[in-house]
Amino acid sequence: MAAQKGKDLLLKVDDNGDGSFTTVAGLRTRRIAFNAESVDITDTESAGRWRELLGGAGVQRAALSGAGIFKDAASDAALRQIFFDGRVAPFQAVIPDFGSITGPFQVTALEYAGEHNGEVTFEATLESAGALTFAVL
């Protein structure tokens, strides 16, 4: 696989729950991380005392994060309202030449910053709140 442009990794939100996703504007950096807990089932009869894990038993989770500047009032307002409502909403991460991850996420952190001679920036962190689906693009 050839190198890909970071700007092509998109974070989208379905603010209305109607199935139409809108790109969260102004993101300069974005990240998606997948994690799964392991369940240790090692016992005294484990071969050579090597750790044994129980496949498919741990909790899986995904975290989305992004930082940048809001380029339009609509995406700023949507993300902010989802956070203040404490609402779980459909989000989508589009990963170029890989696919898209779609599912329910909760905005767990929303931070704003700015310097006196610069623009206002924001950082947002989202945690998965249910089953995610993967689709090949």
Rank of each mutant, 00 (worst) to 15 (best):
T108L: 00
A77M: 09
T44K: 15
P104I: 01
A113P: 14
N35F: 03
N117V: 01
A63C: 01
G56A: 02
D40G: 10
Y112K: 05
I95Y: 05
P96V: 01
A47P: 12
T44R: 15
A47N: 14
I32W: 06
G99W: 08
A47S: 10
L110Y: 07
T44S: 13
I32Q: 11
Y112L: 10
L79F: 04
V94F: 04
G86N: 11
S65N: 01
A77S: 13
V107W: 07
T42P: 11
N35H: 04
S75K: 04
S46T: 13
S46I: 05
L54R: 13
G86V: 07
K71N: 14
N117E: 14
A67W: 06
D76Q: 15
I95H: 03
T125W: 11
S38I: 06
A36Y: 05
E111R: 05
S65V: 12
F91G: 07
E45I: 02
G48P: 02
A73E: 11
R87I: 01
G99E: 06
A73H: 07
A63I: 13
R80Y: 09
Q81G: 04
N35D: 14
I41F: 01
E52K: 14
L79P: 04
R61C: 11
R80Q: 10
A93Y: 00
A113W: 02
G48F: 09
W50E: 10
R61P: 08
I32N: 10
T125V: 14
A47G: 13
V120S: 05
I101R: 03
A33S: 13
A93V: 11
L54D: 09
S38M: 06
A63V: 10
A47Y: 03
Q81N: 10
T121V: 08
F84R: 13
G99R: 07
P104V: 05
A78C: 06
G114L: 09
L53A: 13
I41T: 15
S38Q: 05
Y112G: 15
D76Y: 12
R49N: 14
V94S: 10
F98N: 08
A73W: 09
G114A: 05
E119K: 14
A89Y: 00
L64R: 07
E115L: 09
Q60A: 15
E119R: 04
T125P: 02
D40S: 15
E119H: 04
S75R: 01
L126H: 01
A109I: 08
F91N: 00
S100A: 10
K71Y: 00
F122K: 03
R87D: 07
W50F: 14
A33G: 11
F91Y: 07
F105E: 08
E45C: 02
F122R: 06
A93C: 09
F84E: 00
S100C: 02
G86E: 07
F34L: 03
E123F: 02
R87A: 15
G48R: 10
R49W: 15
N35T: 14
G86S: 14
V59A: 15
E111K: 08
I82K: 08
A77W: 07
V39I: 13
H116D: 10
F91A: 01
L126P: 02
E119N: 03
A67M: 08
F84M: 08
G103M: 03
G56W: 00
E123G: 09
